[in-house]
Simulated scan of single mutants.
Amino acid sequence: MSTTPAPRIAVIGAGPGGLTCARILQKHGITATVYDRDTGPDARDQGGTLDLHADNGQIALREAGLLGEFFRLARHEGQEMRQMDRAGTILFHHIPEQDERFKPEIDRGRLRDLLLNSLQPGTVRWDHTLQTISGPAAGPRQLHFTNGTTIECDLVIGADGAWSKVRRALSQVTPRYSGVSFLETWFHDVSIQHRDIAELVGPGSAAAADGDRGLFAQRNSGDHIRVYIIQRVPADWITAGGLTPQDTSGIRAHLLEHYRDWSPRLRKLITDNDGLYVDRPIFALPVPHTWEHNPTVTLIGDAAHLMPPLGVGVNLAMLDACELALAVAHHNTVDQAIRAYESTMLPRSTETAQLLDGAADDLLSAELPDFATTDHH
């Protein structure tokens, strides 16, 4: 970027993609500011665990200079995977090799802290919810935040997830409901309070499905297990059934009826949870999702290509972040950098999205899925 003044770069969203992008830009001596709607780094639970793959997420961490630290924090045993039928019989069991490093697990919160702590102080501006983007397509752009702040920048990077506000500057498309919904629930202190479940799930993850219903359980650090109850239901199934999200006993009774022919051992994943159920309907962007090139705005991760949760989302977001940051570092103008980045990102994400189009249904399949050995989120 030596031939022109350094561009003013705004990254919207302090998730793994946005933070990875800012970190790699900083490693190349380029300043970027990240704006996030959360009031601070600990404003909310960051979600469960994820596996970072050698062929995408780990590439980004290597470029960010954080791969060694990631391997120290990661749970390599989390790569273990059990696939069961509804009777609880194990049909498939992957036990990782001692030195297997293809896709170790890390809690989202730990990954977020690793990335946050690698950034220069003050990089992330909390409590900044983007409202609108104005200014000519050629730039500079003005970002208007709900707290009354307005900032001017030369490059806007939308790393703001499924319901991206930045996307609206490029595309009128919105995510559509997949027909499949997750209900997330938690188990704490499992080695003492939930020994049966700890044994059933093991050190990694365990899944079961019968074609209409599924369960996916995943070990997190700190002796926690998260379970996702997977159903093919209307997006508003809780309220349509006369229930509220807070009505834990009502939802539990409904689920027990829905899973009545499953084994008692697996039904404990539905009934013995600590706390509420959290409704997570699965949305995806239409395939392919592309847009007219814009010289000052681009997207990474779910903002660009929201797909069903089958193990690629965070990995692709981090690879996008890495490639965009390197493009900015290696091109003379923001416009050239965006063109170079999108020329590889859009075909890659379209190809992956086509593979996963409708794949939310695979989460319910009684057949052993292809991703039993490769992807399992």
Rank of each mutant, 00 (worst) to 15 (best):
T350W: 07
A43G: 06
T352A: 09
S2K: 13
H93A: 10
T373R: 14
I12E: 08
Q131M: 03
G48S: 05
H289K: 09
A64Q: 00
L155C: 11
P295A: 04
R62L: 06
L52H: 08
M84C: 15
D113H: 12
T20Q: 10
W163R: 14
H330N: 15
W163S: 04
L183Q: 10
L170W: 10
A208F: 12
H94V: 02
S134T: 13
D261Y: 04
S249I: 00
A240S: 07
L355C: 02
R232W: 08
L25I: 15
A162V: 07
R112D: 00
R108H: 07
E105M: 03
P264Q: 02
L155F: 09
R280W: 10
V278F: 12
D36M: 06
E367P: 07
R37T: 04
G358V: 01
D99I: 08
L310K: 14
L111P: 01
Q142K: 11
P286E: 14
T271Y: 00
H293V: 06
V287C: 09
D320W: 13
D212V: 04
G214E: 05
L52Y: 08
T271V: 00
P41M: 05
G29Y: 09
W237C: 08
C322I: 00
L114S: 03
V190N: 03
F92N: 12
Y277C: 02
S205R: 11
V166I: 10
H258M: 02
D279L: 13
A22P: 15
T4E: 09
E69P: 00
L319C: 05
R176K: 15
R86G: 05
E63S: 12
W237Q: 10
D189P: 09
A22C: 11
A208K: 09
S263G: 10
L183N: 07
